[in-house]
Computed example of a mutant assay.
Amino acid sequence: MLGITAAVLLFIAFLINAATIGTNEVFSSTNFTLIGLAALALHVAGIGHGWAVRGRGRGRRR
């Protein structure tokens, strides 16, 4: 999930930079790039890889 989020944020940063859209400091392409790279780093680290429900499943019965 974080990989998709990173891709979307980096694409938005690219659009802002390529279209030279004048934005305020909060929505600058640099901020979108940094947030996208942080999300990508978390994805590569294994955080946010998916939701796992632990409980009774197909485990071994005694």
Rank of each mutant, 00 (worst) to 15 (best):
23 T>D: 03
9 L>K: 00
60 R>N: 04
54 R>K: 14
9 L>D: 02
37 L>R: 03
51 W>Y: 10
62 R>P: 07
6 A>D: 01
29 S>P: 09
44 V>P: 00
59 G>E: 13
55 G>W: 01
34 L>G: 02
14 F>K: 11
58 R>A: 11
40 L>I: 05
50 G>M: 05
5 T>Q: 15
29 S>M: 07
13 A>Y: 00
28 S>C: 06
47 I>D: 06
47 I>L: 12
30 T>C: 04
16 I>N: 06
37 L>C: 15
14 F>M: 06
41 A>R: 03
45 A>K: 01
42 L>S: 04
27 F>D: 06
59 G>D: 05
39 A>C: 15
47 I>H: 07
61 R>S: 09
25 E>P: 00
24 N>M: 06
41 A>G: 09
50 G>S: 09
60 R>T: 11
30 T>E: 08
2 L>H: 06
44 V>L: 15
48 G>R: 03
55 G>D: 03
3 G>E: 06
6 A>E: 00
4 I>H: 13
18 A>V: 12
23 T>W: 03
57 G>D: 08
19 A>S: 09
19 A>H: 12
26 V>T: 12
35 I>T: 05
51 W>C: 04
2 L>Q: 12
23 T>N: 11
56 R>K: 15
59 G>V: 06
53 V>M: 09
23 T>A: 08
32 F>S: 01
44 V>I: 13
37 L>G: 10
19 A>D: 09
24 N>P: 05
58 R>C: 00
18 A>G: 01
58 R>I: 07
23 T>F: 03
17 N>R: 15
36 G>C: 07
52 A>L: 14
40 L>V: 03
45 A>C: 13
12 I>F: 14
8 V>G: 05
40 L>T: 01
37 L>E: 01
24 N>E: 07
54 R>F: 06
15 L>N: 13
47 I>K: 12
24 N>Y: 04
29 S>H: 13
55 G>S: 09
60 R>D: 07
38 A>S: 13
35 I>N: 00
